[in-house]
Structure formats: C-alpha cells, structure tokens
C-alpha cells in the first residue's frame, strides 16, 4: 500500500504559492528524502499531511485516508517530528511519551523509548529544562511510539551534533528494517545521501525532481563531474565556459581548478573552448557527482 499519495496538491497564500500542484507517492518501507532550500515549501507540504494547513487545491492521502477529511485515521499509523514545535513546559520527558502512548493506544514502555533516543537519564525532568538536542530526541521518541508504519520527520537532525545526527540515522535505519516508511525533509544533503532510497527536490513550491540518487546522477552529465586544472584561470574564462551548450554548472575550486557538471557531449567542447582562449590545461579528471552538485544543478543556486 502507498504510504503517501499526493495528487495535484497546491497551497496558495495571498501573495505566494507555497506549493504548486505537487504529485508524488512514497511506497511502504522506503526512506524518502525531501530536499529543498529554506522556504521551498517542504514544511508546508508536511503541514498539509498533518492537517495543520488546509490545501487550496488537490488532495493527499496517508495509507488511503484523506489527510483533511479523515485526518484522525490518516494520522493513526504515523509518527511525527514536526517543525517549529515546542515541548509542554511542565511535563517531564516520560509524560510526553506517555501522552503519545495514550493517544495512540499503544503499549510501549516510555523508559525504553527514552533509552532508545538517548534521554533516559532525563526522563523525570521537565522537558523545558532539556537542551535543543534533547528536545529533538524526545519528540523523535514520541514519534516512535506504537511502531508506526510511516515516520514523517521535518528536519530531524536540527540542533544535534554530528554524533547525535549519526545516532538518529541509525534509528531511522532500524525503523526502515522493521518495515516502516520514512519521509524526511532536510537541507543537509550528506544526511539525505547517506540513507535515502529516493529523493524529491522542491524549489519555490515546485517539484523539480523525484528520483533515486543514482537516477539523479544519470540525468546530469552521466553522473560525473569534470575537474580541469588550468593555469591562469580567470573569471572571464569561467564565464565563457558556462556559456558552452550543455554545461550546467561551472565553478572554481582552489583558484586553479575548474569544476563543472555537463552533458557528455559538452565535455570535448569545453576543452576545445579552453584551448581557444589560450588557457593551459594541466590536468583533466572526472569525479562522481555528489548530491550537492546535483542539488545545485537542479535548483540553480547554492544551498542555504
């Protein structure tokens, strides 16, 4: 069964279109990364899934239940880490998990959950005393209650150090191995690359790509990045190279290396162009494109 099925989902505010006819589906058991610069509409999409926000057009279902008309049923099999939440000031960590457990009618042991996300020793302290990272772990813990079939996580590693982020990734892998689908948004590309089966890239409310990471690689320059060491590289040269047909991105690395993604056909043209400009090509190699390169290629701008 399809975990998430969005059909022509749009959300317009008075002056901005936050989501523009988004259609996508997430299958059971896959880890799906939702990428985009800040303000691209990632959180709006997630907020529609959770019925915090009502769509202007289109619809979306979780496990066949419409998120707006059957919201309770739609949220019955999911665990959520929303964006912009705050904890209940006076409740302890244990009481937070207890709240989720009661509402979901589950029988998890709150302490086991807190242990899993690494805040067991703080179980009986008010959650308002927790650090940002601990709050994030606590809410992740709440989302794990009742072994949900789908986890929806909005920027799950915010506020965590690299170790914490790695721990969370390993929890997500455990959940996936258990059979849960995971849908998470992020602007931290390394994390997405490390665990996602498929990714979607959202920009200004438009879905610009949905594919596996390999698939994305294939669609830009055969998945490779061209690195050309040039003597006396100047801005003018770079501009000229950018203008060559088939070149998607061209940037300068370390002052002397021209880094670019382009279609296979364009590679030779670039070298010819460099020769014509009288630039001295010292070395020429290829490298597998990283997700970041692809992201830049798709969104036409730097990551934020």
């Amino acid at each position: 069964m399809t975990a998430i099925a969005a059909d022509g989902l749009s959300k317009r505010y008075a002056t901005v279109t936050a989501l523009d006819r988004i259609s996508l589906s997430v299958e059971e058991g896959e880890i799906f990364g939702f990428l985009g610069p800040n303000g691209a509409g990632k959180s709006t999409f997630i907020n529609v899934l959770l019925d915090f926000v009502r769509p202007t057009d289109g619809s979306v279902e979780l496990f066949g239940h419409d998120c707006q008309t059957e919201g309770v049923a739609a949220r019955d099999r999911i665990g959520v880490l929303p964006e912009g939440y705050s904890v209940f000031d006076r409740l302890t960590g244990r009481q937070h998990v207890e709240y989720a457990r009661r509402s979901k009618d589950a029988d998890d042991d709150p302490i086991e959950i807190l242990d899993r996300v690494g805040v067991r020793e703080a179980a009986d302290r008010p959650a308002s005393d927790y650090s940002k990272g601990m709050k994030q772990r606590l809410v992740l813990g709440m989302s794990l209650v009742g072994d949900p079939d789908l986890l929806i996580l909005d920027e799950p590693t915010t506020g965590l150090d690299p170790n914490g982020a790695a721990e969370i990734r390993s929890i997500l892998r455990e959940e996936r191995d258990r059979g849960a689908a995971i849908f998470f948004s992020s602007h931290i590309l390394e994390q997405v690359e490390a665990i996602c089966d498929r990714v979607a890239i959202l920009q200004d409310g438009d879905l610009v790509a949905v594919d596996t990471i390999d698939g994305l690689r294939q669609s830009i320059g055969g998945g490779t990045k061209l690195l050309i060491d040039v003597d006396g590289l100047d801005e003018e040269t770079v501009e000229t190279v950018r203008a060559v047909d088939g070149v998607e991105t061209a940037t300068v690395r370390d002052g002397t290396t021209l880094e670019m993604t382009c279609t296979n056909d364009a590679k030779m043209n670039v070298v010819v162009e460099l020769q014509r400009l009288g630039a001295d090509v010292v070395n020429f190699r290829t490298e597998e494109a990283s997700l970041e390169d692809m992201f830049v290629a798709y969104t036409g701008g730097g990551r934020e």
Binding site: D76, P82, Y85, H96
Partner: peptide
C-alpha cells in the same frame, strides 16, 4: 503560539 499544539495535533486526535 509556542508550537506545543503541533505535538498534540500530530497525534491521531481531532
């Protein structure tokens, strides 16, 4: 206003 309502409404309750 502070966002704890989101935690409540993310749960399966209307």
């Amino acid at each position: 206003a502070d966002g704890s309502l989101l935690l409540s409404m993310a749960l399966p309750q209307s």
